[in-house]
Amino acid sequence: MTYVIAQPCVDVKDKACIQECPVDCIYEGQRALYIHPEECVDCGACEPVCPVEAIFYEDDTPQEWAQYKAVNAEFFDELGSPGGASALGLIERDHPVVAGQPVRTG
């Protein structure tokens, strides 16, 4: 099991979760953040600091955002398991589900 970042993060990317993650498994895409399912140690440190409540334990992800379990995992299909987000910085792409959403402003 792992944690999942869902739709409320799109176009917000507060990054408080990145600062709390002890294993550096939260990666930054163009419009959203993604948790690497193989690198996450299920500590839960990221969940309470998310200001938009976008992070859920996999089994607790609301049904309306259930597809984000796959979105987070599939984001890493090409990337593999780099072993830490900080060395990569911004990854200039997003999962197609995220990229296809209307841009939120304000």
Rank of each mutant, 00 (worst) to 15 (best):
residue 99 A to M: 10
residue 59 D to A: 13
residue 32 A to R: 07
residue 90 L to E: 11
residue 16 A to C: 12
residue 95 H to V: 05
residue 11 D to E: 09
residue 56 F to K: 04
residue 59 D to W: 11
residue 3 Y to T: 01
residue 85 A to K: 02
residue 24 D to V: 06
residue 66 A to S: 11
residue 70 A to P: 04
residue 36 H to E: 09
residue 104 R to P: 00
residue 78 E to Y: 09
residue 101 Q to S: 08
residue 5 I to L: 09
residue 32 A to K: 09
residue 38 E to S: 07
residue 28 E to K: 10
residue 51 P to E: 11
residue 77 D to A: 10
residue 66 A to I: 06
residue 31 R to L: 13
residue 3 Y to K: 00
residue 58 E to C: 07
residue 14 D to N: 15
residue 31 R to Y: 15
residue 10 V to C: 02
residue 82 P to T: 06
residue 29 G to R: 05
residue 62 P to E: 06
residue 34 Y to R: 06
residue 59 D to L: 13
residue 45 A to R: 08
residue 60 D to G: 02
residue 87 A to L: 13
residue 104 R to L: 13
residue 46 C to I: 04
residue 74 E to G: 03
residue 61 T to A: 09
residue 15 K to S: 13
residue 3 Y to D: 02
residue 64 E to Y: 04
residue 36 H to Q: 12
residue 36 H to W: 09
residue 61 T to G: 01
residue 24 D to K: 07
residue 43 C to H: 07
residue 91 I to C: 05
residue 50 C to A: 02
residue 60 D to V: 00
residue 74 E to Y: 00
residue 48 P to D: 02
residue 84 G to Y: 11
residue 34 Y to I: 08
residue 10 V to H: 01
residue 16 A to R: 15
residue 79 L to C: 06
residue 29 G to V: 06
residue 95 H to F: 11
residue 39 E to N: 02
residue 89 G to E: 09
residue 106 G to R: 15
residue 37 P to R: 06
residue 49 V to K: 03
residue 21 C to N: 06
residue 14 D to E: 15
residue 35 I to M: 09
residue 34 Y to P: 02
residue 7 Q to N: 14
residue 65 W to K: 00
residue 62 P to M: 07
residue 67 Q to S: 07
residue 84 G to H: 10
residue 79 L to P: 05
residue 20 E to I: 01
residue 27 Y to M: 10
residue 81 S to A: 14
residue 3 Y to H: 08
residue 67 Q to E: 15
residue 74 E to Q: 15
residue 60 D to N: 09
residue 88 L to C: 05
residue 82 P to Q: 10
residue 36 H to C: 03
residue 80 G to S: 03
residue 62 P to W: 09
residue 10 V to P: 05
residue 3 Y to R: 01
residue 83 G to M: 12
residue 5 I to H: 00
residue 59 D to T: 08
residue 9 C to K: 00
residue 37 P to H: 09
residue 75 F to L: 03
residue 22 P to F: 12
residue 97 V to E: 12
residue 47 E to D: 05
residue 36 H to Y: 08
residue 95 H to K: 06
residue 96 P to M: 08
residue 8 P to K: 02
residue 3 Y to C: 00
residue 102 P to F: 11
residue 12 V to F: 10
residue 44 G to Q: 12
residue 56 F to Q: 03
residue 6 A to E: 02
residue 106 G to W: 14
residue 49 V to G: 02
residue 19 Q to Y: 14
residue 54 A to G: 03
residue 32 A to G: 01
residue 24 D to G: 01
residue 90 L to D: 04
residue 42 D to T: 13
residue 19 Q to H: 14
residue 41 V to P: 00
residue 45 A to V: 03
residue 20 E to S: 12
residue 87 A to C: 05
residue 100 G to Q: 08
residue 58 E to Q: 15
residue 42 D to P: 03
residue 75 F to S: 00
residue 34 Y to C: 02
residue 9 C to I: 07
residue 26 I to Q: 03
residue 57 Y to W: 15
residue 99 A to Q: 13
residue 1 M to C: 10
residue 15 K to C: 12
residue 86 S to H: 12
residue 104 R to E: 12
residue 5 I to W: 03
residue 57 Y to T: 05
residue 93 R to E: 14
residue 55 I to G: 04
residue 8 P to F: 04
